[in-house]
């Protein structure tokens, strides 16, 4: 995506939305006796400051984003999604099998997402799974 002014203003908008959400979320919080502020004081103060930062970022957006990640390609997004799937797969598989096997599957999915050679990925995933199993299920008795 090109670096135009709208793109640079996204952080400012996100900060403002976050501030509004916190403010709405704290409206039901109780106060201390005699009307002194209670649990909502700190989050509300943060919401106010987040809104100020949001306005500041909208007013003067800065473009010092890391050059290497200047533009995220479609392939890059796919690889990231692959990484996320690998991590979430751990949650699905872990209840059914051992922690080592689940970690090995995460490794396998991430390796495939990184387009590494399949033979190398299989060996690496198996070795990682065994190591994690030995460490966490064996040594640390998890």
């Amino acid at each position: 995506m090109p670096y135009n002014s709208i793109y640079l203003r996204i952080p400012g908008i996100v900060f403002l939305i976050l501030a509004a959400a916190i403010w709405l979320g704290t409206r039901s919080f109780p106060s201390l006796p005699e009307g002194y502020p209670g649990p909502g004081l700190f989050p509300n103060a943060l919401a106010f400051l987040l809104a100020l930062v949001g306005i500041g970022l909208l007013w003067r957006p800065t473009a010092e984003v890391v050059r290497a990640t200047h533009q995220l390609s479609g392939k890059g997004v796919t690889r990231i999604l692959g990484g996320l799937s690998g991590a979430l797969l751990f949650l699905l598989i872990n209840p059914l099998t051992s922690i080592g096997a689940a970690a090995g599957m995460t490794c396998l999915v991430c390796g495939v997402a990184m387009r590494a050679r399949i033979k190398a990925v299989l060996i690496t995933s198996a070795a990682t799974g065994v190591m994690i199993h030995l460490l966490f299920s064996g040594l640390l008795a998890l």
Partner: peptide, 25 residues
């Protein structure tokens, strides 16, 4: 060390590490 093999290992270590603290998904 090829990075495309190193990153999956680190990803596996991350998920295992996070899970292992409290055994909580």
């Amino acid at each position: 060390l090829p990075f495309n093999l190193l990153l999956p290992i680190i990803a596996a270590a991350c998920v295992t590490g996070a899970y292992a603290i409290n055994n909580n998904p």
